[in-house]
Structure formats: structure tokens, C-alpha cells
């Protein structure tokens, strides 16, 4: 199982973002580079691409939740 984590947003402090919505549902097949989830920070909306291919087995951070950099967003089952 591969843990997809929130990448570095580049900010000095308060590295966090809110999950706006997921582009996929649990059980969907994902290709590396697909836009996985849309996040919002103080400055902008960001699309986070999937770093790997696989099946989205669990969404850990639900829509509306605040996630810190390095925290797990979802679990990916790799073929």
C-alpha cells in the first residue's frame, strides 16, 4: 500500500491546506500524474497529481478537512 502525502507547499509556516474535493472515488484506477485531489490554501487552489499509478483504496482526508504537509491524503494499492 502506497501512502499519498500532501507535498510541500513551499510556505515557511502553517503548511496546511483544505481538501476541496476528490477527482476520484475509492476503488477507481489512477494513472501517475492524474489530478487526484483539489486543495485550497490561503493563496490559491491547487491540484495534487498522483505520484504513482494504482487503485485508490482509501481516501484518508475527506472533503473539508485540513491537512498538514507530509500528512497522508489517501492510500493507493499498486498492481
Amino acid at each position: 500500500m502506497y501512502e499519498i502525502k500532501l507535498p510541500d507547499l513551499g510556505e515557511d509556516a502553517g503548511d496546511e491546506a483544505i481538501v476541496s474535493f476528490w477527482h476520484f472515488d475509492e476503488g477507481d484506477e489512477i494513472n501517475e500524474g492524474d489530478d487526484l485531489v483539489e486543495m485550497t490554501t490561503d493563496k490559491a487552489t491547487f491540484n495534487v497529481p498522483s505520484p504513482r499509478s494504482g487503485v485508490l483504496s482509501e481516501i484518508v482526508a475527506d472533503e473539508g478537512e485540513t491537512v498538514k504537509v507530509g500528512e497522508v491524503l489517501a492510500l493507493l494499492e499498486q498492481e
Binding site: 507535498p7 510541500d8 507547499l9 496546511e16 491546506a17 483544505i18 476541496s20 474535493f21 489530478d35 483539489e38 486543495m39 485550497t40 490554501t41 490561503d42 490559491a44 487552489t45 491547487f46 491540484n47 495534487v48 497529481p49 505520484p51 472533503e63 473539508g64 485540513t66
Partner: peptide
């Protein structure tokens, strides 16, 4: 504090590339 979702118009949207070059730069 972060504000609620939907506060930005659709053109204020970026991608967060997880690139090895970015790690090298850092």
C-alpha cells in the same frame, strides 16, 4: 486560519508537481 472552499475563482488554480527536480532545488 484557512478559509472555506470555493473562495477562489476557477482561474486561481495551480498544480503541485511532485518533481525530483524540486527536491534537488530545495
Amino acid at each position: 486560519m484557512l478559509q472555506a472552499k470555493g473562495k477562489f475563482p476557477p482561474w486561481i488554480k495551480k498544480r503541485l508537481p511532485a518533481s525530483p527536480v524540486a527536491d534537488l532545488t530545495r
